[in-house]
Computed example of a mutant assay.
Amino acid sequence: MLPRLVIHNSISPDGSTTGFDANLDVHYGILGSYEPDAMIVGSNTAKVGTQFFCEKIPPEDKEDFKKPDIHPDDTRAYWMIADSRGTLEGLMHVFRRSEYSKDIIVLVSEKTPESYINYLKERDYDFIRAGVERVDVRQGLEIAGERYGFKLVVSDSGGILNSILLEQGLVDEISLVLTPEIVGKSGTNLFRGIEKSGIQLELSRNEIVEKKYVHLVYRVLKE
């Protein structure tokens, strides 16, 4: 069964996800309020995000080759990273060490390099194989729901993965933190990869946060 899926992102009024300093306390504070079972992110977004965790990629140590001990009361979300090309080989320990992550689950495809699969196995990362050339996100989410009992997944990713999620009709809700800054031509549109038009939304909630940001929540009206 498919988990409920929410897209969450911080954007400028002209729809960009880059070119401004996002308030991470507000962004992740709102995301955490959803209490998701897992967060899903694309490999490119994850790779760019390593700069937020460390200035320089640290070497692996023996603790990076085994799963972390997870307490039954741990409320942190798992991170699901779609990485069919093995983009994050040598970087996974950065995410596993994060205080915000329970552990990492990697979504791969049939064409994922075997060297990358061995890299994941050697370090005891869970992975879900879904799709042939690229990750079949729908199938991956279905397997995650069945295997781990996930009920709610939040996408904290970029335009490519979010566009795929919308086009495939997987999104139930869109949560946007509106930052009062116009980016202009240098911006990166949140849904720049989407080809399908006419996706209808219904505003379900709006609120002012810290007298500067606006949190908008839309329900996706499915056909």
Rank of each mutant, 00 (worst) to 15 (best):
Q51R: 13
F52R: 14
E55Q: 09
K56P: 08
P58R: 04
P59N: 05
D61Q: 03
E63R: 15
E63I: 12
D69Y: 08
D73G: 11
D73M: 12
D73I: 06
D74P: 06
R76V: 14
A77R: 10
A77L: 07
A77V: 10
W79K: 12
M80T: 05
I81Y: 03
D83Q: 04
D83W: 02
D83E: 11
S84F: 11
R85T: 06
R85E: 05
E89W: 01
G90A: 00
G90C: 00
F95G: 02
Y100G: 08
S101W: 13
K102P: 07
D103F: 07
D103K: 12
I104C: 15
I104Q: 10
V106K: 07
S109Y: 05
S109L: 10
K111Y: 06
P113R: 06
I117T: 00
N118V: 06
R123W: 13
D124F: 06
D124I: 02
Y125M: 03
D126A: 08
G131I: 04
E133G: 00
V137M: 10
R138M: 13
L141N: 03
E142D: 07
A144R: 09
G145I: 15
E146K: 15
S155P: 15
L161K: 11
N162S: 11
S163C: 12
L170F: 04
E173V: 01
E173P: 02
